[in-house]
Amino acid sequence: MRRILAVLGFVLLASCQSDEGAPTPQFHATENPQSLSEWGMLRATRDTLLTGSGVEPYDLNTPLFSDHAGKFRTIWMPEGASARYSEEEVFDFPVGTVITKTFYYPVAEDGQLLRGDRPADIWAAPDTLDLASVHLVETRILVRRETGWVALPYVWNEDQTDAVLMRTGDMQHFVLADGGGEIEVNYLVPNANQCQGCHATNNTTREIQPIGPAARHLNRDFDYGDGPVNQIDHLVAAGYLTGAPSPDEAPQAPDWTDTRVPVEARARAWLDINCAHCHNPAGSADTSGLYLDPGTPMGPNFGLCKVPIAAGPGSGGHRFDIVPGRPEESILIFRMESLRPDVMMPELGRSVIHEESLALLRDWISGLEGDCS
């Protein structure tokens, strides 16, 4: 596992070393560079992937599922700029902020691609620090300009030396080794409209927003090289965040894989990061009446014994979104089990079924008490 996650560990270490040799970040206020390297956030050398000066890595308590890809996230702001803390919403980031998310698959010693989303201490210092340990797929940039946020997808070239802007998106086929078997992935790099489909979290304004950088997702420890430090504290110390309370006073979403946490909290954390950017009272799925955000209490709006609205084939002939004690009769499970484009949920970002999250949600629904009759 140490070799599999080598490059990602090196990226972390490189960000904590001196800035000698690190790229210089650039805020492009209007133009969209054709190459990722022109942003100066990340740079691939012959052996390693470097982060730019002042570019801070971060992770989420529970990440979005994306066809078993691993993800490396960074954030950068211009000198003197900082985000304003929010208790519930994504932080209010200043103009000039650049957020990156790099998607990759680990490479085994025999060259086989592997899943990158296995629970593991991915930030442990590795023995091998070379790009042969991962296959970089794409890096998505969210940049905050005067006119609002802009999403730009960059696809890594075959030589893994740089990534090229692909506004029209891309599709790539991968075969991942998985416990003696294989998983075939038709990996989708979203186009500009598809980026807006998820990141336009308010269906009225249709403005693009980040999804992950909120207090509940960031409130966790991260090893920046000198031992674990709370990410909120680190962002405050770096000058990137103002107005934040101490971490023990901030909300915290659980890690959905942490079996020490009650199953309902884990299930809601998974639904929050994977579904709530659309399924909330203001989101693009607002007319569905199904709200999976943390502020919605357990009840009909969260799907319990709720009749679907205009679901069409998405109902699968089932009567309710969630039937307590009966996951096999719940529309939520039916749609997560499907790969039909007009049925599957989430509808973007996956071409395979995520068996682990399905198992969690089945367990949660099986334990719910009640009767929809």
Results as ranks from 00 to 15, higher is better:
56 E>A: 04
322 I>M: 05
10 F>E: 15
203 N>G: 12
315 S>F: 00
35 S>E: 09
180 G>T: 11
17 Q>Y: 02
96 G>W: 06
78 P>K: 03
134 V>G: 07
292 L>T: 04
290 L>K: 02
297 P>Y: 11
373 S>T: 14
313 P>D: 09
192 A>Q: 12
284 S>I: 11
141 I>W: 01
372 C>Y: 01
158 E>Y: 10
228 P>L: 13
218 L>D: 02
161 T>M: 04
300 P>E: 15
265 A>P: 01
55 V>Q: 03
23 P>A: 03
134 V>N: 13
124 A>M: 07
13 L>M: 12
69 A>D: 10
329 E>F: 00
256 W>C: 07
28 H>E: 07
263 V>M: 08
168 T>H: 11
349 G>Y: 02
81 A>C: 05
265 A>L: 15
24 T>V: 15
23 P>D: 08
356 E>L: 08
8 L>M: 09
220 R>K: 14
164 V>M: 07
216 R>N: 12
321 D>M: 10
252 Q>W: 02
210 P>I: 06
201 T>C: 06
189 V>Y: 10
112 Q>T: 14
245 P>C: 12
258 D>F: 05
202 N>D: 15
201 T>W: 01
294 P>D: 15
262 P>Y: 04
298 M>E: 13
28 H>S: 06
99 I>E: 12
44 A>V: 07
176 L>N: 04
49 L>T: 09
349 G>A: 08
137 V>D: 03
165 L>R: 09
66 S>N: 14
125 A>Q: 09
245 P>I: 14
352 V>K: 05
234 H>L: 12
107 V>P: 01
231 Q>F: 02
10 F>L: 05
344 M>E: 05
267 A>P: 03
324 P>Q: 13
255 D>E: 08
124 A>S: 11
47 D>S: 14
285 A>H: 11
28 H>W: 15
298 M>R: 07
84 R>Y: 10
365 I>N: 00
274 N>E: 08
157 N>A: 04
131 L>D: 05
246 S>V: 13
338 S>R: 03
240 Y>W: 06
120 A>Q: 06
109 E>M: 13
136 L>T: 08
183 I>D: 10
286 D>L: 13
94 P>N: 07
290 L>S: 04
241 L>H: 02
286 D>G: 00
114 L>F: 01
55 V>F: 02
166 M>E: 14
171 M>E: 14
280 N>I: 14
363 D>P: 01
52 G>N: 06
255 D>W: 06
310 A>I: 03
308 P>R: 08
275 C>F: 04
119 P>T: 09
111 G>L: 09
194 Q>R: 13
274 N>I: 12
104 Y>F: 15
351 S>F: 07
135 H>Q: 15
224 Y>G: 08
122 I>S: 04
187 Y>A: 14
123 W>M: 09
214 A>L: 11
177 A>T: 08
53 S>Y: 00
346 P>S: 08
342 D>R: 08
319 R>K: 15
47 D>F: 00
97 T>L: 05
151 A>F: 11
208 I>R: 12
106 P>H: 06
268 R>N: 06
307 V>Y: 00
370 G>F: 06
248 D>V: 13
212 G>S: 12
90 V>I: 13
273 I>R: 09
227 G>R: 01
357 S>T: 14
67 D>K: 10
165 L>P: 02
43 R>M: 14
203 N>F: 15
201 T>K: 06
237 A>P: 00
69 A>C: 13
11 V>T: 11
285 A>N: 07
